[in-house]
Nucleic acid binder design. Structure first.
Lengths: 349, 349
DNA sequence: CTGTTAGCGCCTTCAG
DNA sequence: CTGAAGGCGCTAACAG
């Protein structure tokens, strides 16, 4: 902001400081600090007077100096592996809620499934002296997170592949999710099942598959489970899958497909319908993730949803707890249960 | 991090400061500052010695103190209206790139289409003394942004409904996009067109419609344009639209649909195919946004794409320019052109 | 090349 | 309830 000075020259206004406010209001610096931080300690009359000067000058508290002097921060950082994925957006929303309720601000950083970026943002938050950081990591080494923690800055892992013992975390039971999906399809009367997803090196994909196997084994008698591994979990892969399924002889075609992701399921449904195969009559399909893909399909797709919102809330609560009482805090990993969401694509036959 | 002290008590390590590093390395504080900020000014031998102490102590520079003392920030803030929308994710990526190239860090905040949140994050960045802020605003008042600017902090608007004169901005020509889409469909041989999208109070929806009208008027002779307003731009609305189109008598059914969004178009395509209507043979469809919805459909959907990545890059460049030379900076709004992406859904008949 | 020093803007005792 | 003073960790001259 530039101001016209008396003599006509223009000058860049330096941001007004608390000292300026104090001068303007005719009080001392300490008093201004008090109206900002402990208004209760200040006489009502001075309070209003100081506040008037504050917005007369357009004063904005300098958070850098504030945190530096106070030795604490009111900011949390959240490094997100994939901001394009609705699960993480839900988690971020939950985290944002709790942060707000507890008087903290939440800053986001998108690592974009890139390890270097993830580490760089972890360091950024470390240097920015945030109160703590939430990390939805990619499948990879967690040493940068360990470094941040070693600097005395709490880190909570959200949706990390393997639970750690030296830090808090929130995960959902992937194996259970696979089990629930498969069990649901079995209950609907199908027996010739296929599990699809990939690569199997992805923790979640493997876990969900394990759950599917457990359900099929439990069902015994005549229930079979074929594995169709894909290279990715995208709609395109789903389309390809659907086409190849459509080409199969009907007797060799599964009567139900358990997909490791909604995107995959959605593509599959589209290709199947395009080829004239009826869903769920000829093939039932269930997805995973409870994305819009599933709900917004021509044939609404059954799915398994993670409680993203709750994950974000709990993770943030854990983080705040650790920040506030680092002494008697005991690390723990909370495991949440995924939820089955039954829709038309798995209707009983 | 807790350490076992000599006498057995545990103490919370205070983060080591530059003074600690200086002591450890046997140099002065200023020298440590130099190895951090201008290594060229330091003798190689001291350089390595100081660096050794730095990671011996696990020192992390305190950015709060750094920015406070330096009077400048190396951080930019980006308030995003909808982090679930891939256009904004693309913009964020572009912004992140330029920031990184220019030695700045980019922090994200998701306003989630909520004005209060948007303002709150704007204030947060203001208080955090970021160097400048990028704002992808929602359709609404921009006074909080003006406040930030009045504090001397540059703000660049990205994809804002109406261009401002007192601040920089990057927008794409929505009218042109609507024109290009419609012109393309006209060129493919269709004459009975329908434009769909809504609500029309949304700036982009209205602009694209204006472009569509222009193209149809230009085409003259026999080309007609029907308006089908929807309440939202979702897949669900698209499904409903597709169903209602399918129910129409064939002679009253448009032969081409120009949709204001890919999500809408995707739903429409799905419902149409489900009802046995062929795309593009019976009805051609073109979307808008170049989302995955369009590319990953059974029938790949033609669309109009915004250069999100470039928008983010340019916006950040404008912001950095204003930050670095506030004196001779002149505000301007850059208008980018959307691009037609032709796919199967509008193949010529 | 290295050491010294004065702030950056604010918070937080501690007297008055 | 108000005012004064010291310091948070670092940068940026300026001496040496």
């Amino acid at each position: 902001m530039t101001t016209l000075l008396g003599d006509g020259r223009r000058a860049k206004d330096p941001a007004p400081s608390m000292a300026d406010v104090a001068r303007h209001a005719g009080v001392s610096l300490g008093t201004v600090s008090n109206v900002l931080n402990s208004p209760a300690k200040v006489a009502p009359s001075t309070l209003t007077r100081v506040r008037a000067s504050i917005d007369a000058l357009g004063f904005v508290r300098n958070n850098l100096a504030r945190s530096l002097a106070a030795g604490r921060a009111d900011t949390l950082g959240f490094v997100i592996v994939d901001i394009g994925n609705s699960l993480f957006v839900d988690i971020a929303r939950g985290a944002q809620e709790v942060s707000g309720e507890q008087g903290m601000k939440l800053l986001l950083a998108n690592s974009d499934v890139d390890l270097a970026a993830q580490n760089s943002y972890l360091d950024l938050f470390d240097e920015a002296r945030v109160g703590g950081v939430l990390l939805a990591p990619l499948d990879g080494p967690l040493d940068a997170a360990a470094r941040v923690r070693s600097h005395g800055r709490p880190v909570v892992l959200v949706n990390a592949p393997d639970p750690q013992t030296d830090t808090c975390g929130v995960v959902v039971d992937e194996e259970l999710g696979g089990y629930l999906a498969t069990r649901h399809v079995l209950d609907s009367g199908r027996r010739r099942l296929a599990y699809t997803g990939g690569p199997l090196t992805l923790h979640a994909v493997a876990q969900r598959y394990a759950g599917a196997r457990r359900a099929v084994e439990e069902a015994g008698a005549g229930a079979t489970l074929e594995l169709i591994e894909t290279t990715k979990l995208t709609i395109s892969e789903g389309l390809a899958l659907g086409r190849s399924l459509a080409e199969r002889d009907e007797t060799h075609r599964p009567t139900a497909v358990i997909s490791a992701a909604d995107a995959l399921a959605s593509g599959c449904v589209q290709a199947l319908i395009y080829a004239g195969i009826r869903v769920p009559d000829d093939i039932a399909i269930i997805g995973y993730d409870n994305n819009h893909f599933a709900s917004d399909s021509v044939v609404p797709i059954s799915t398994v949803g993670q409680p993203g919102h709750e994950m974000g809330r709990i993770a943030t609560e854990l983080l705040l707890e650790e920040i506030r009482s680092p002494g008697d805090h005991v690390h723990r990993t909370i495991t949440l249960e995924p939820q089955l969401i039954a829709r038309a694509s798995t209707r009983s036959v």
